[in-house]
Design a protein around this nucleic acid. Structure first.
Lengths: 134, 134
DNA sequence: CATCTTATTGCAACAAATTTGCAATAAGAA
DNA sequence: TTCTTATTGCAAATTTGTTGCAATAAGATG
């Protein structure tokens, strides 16, 4: 996947730098989505400022996507860098269940073409109470 | 819909106050989702603090929901107060197209019951380039 | 309608999160 | 190895979000 990163960067005169590598790795090694400040604390070398700037860059390049996490937002790697999935999220205990569904992928395409949209990404998330908390 | 508000509040010893009314109205009159600070500037009487507190309260009561808007998150009225819908969002120009789809609603229920989940809310969002920006 | 209880507000002071300007640094092309 | 310039780190400024608390005002009650 570092391979893919290089490809993306190569073109638009962007450089693969140490902070960018580190932030990417942090995101990659995390199971759950992370908030900006969590990413911060996981980065030993990259400066706070770089984290924010990199996060925005990654988002613009669709390398990461942001997802709802409780009342706030967090980030995780996007499609080509992670197996595409969605979330079932328990509002009580915070549990996050990954979910894959061909039907959704399908629906995305149908809806998009109906609206003349070129899809780059999508999000599907169900919030509620999990088995244990219901 | 003010009617519904009253019903919700009546029970749990909550009061319908001026700031709460104002914030609700601001949300109601807005086409697009608003950020906390946008809501702030639209409120003439309610204090910043009240806005934050009210937003959290409304969220807990499922009166509003938060949605992705570009890189950040914004709020809009939830189901009973607005027709349930999803978003097609253009990453280029920021355009937001409302979308309704019975299939999604359906899928939500199927997936949820497969996982023993009690659904309280869900999000579906497609990001990409709109007709004009593609 | 006056009164009483207490949920809610506004404010001021904090604390945390995010942004900006800029000189120093280091990718990566030549 | 050199050179260009994208990117970084740092310090300072802003913007966002939070907390404690006395003052206020919903709305229940008589």
């Amino acid at each position: 996947m570092e391979k893919e990163l290089e490809t993306i960067f190569a073109q638009q005169k962007l450089r693969i730098t140490r902070p960018r590598r580190e932030i990417f790795r942090v995101l990659q090694q995390s199971q759950a989505p992370l908030s900006a400040s969590m990413i911060n604390t996981h980065c030993t070398t990259a400066d706070r400022t770089s984290v924010y700037r990199t996060l925005e860059l990654f988002h613009r390049l669709s390398i990461i996507k942001s997802v709802q996490f409780g009342w706030r937002q967090r980030y995780e790697l996007a499609d080509p860098f992670k197996i595409h999935h969605h979330h079932l999220s328990c509002t009580q205990c915070g549990r996050l269940i990954d979910l894959q569904s061909p039907e959704i992928e399908n629906l995305v395409n149908v809806v998009a073409s109906q609206n003349n949209f070129v899809v780059t990404d999508h999000t599907f998330e169900i919030r509620g109470l999990c088995q244990d908390c219901r």
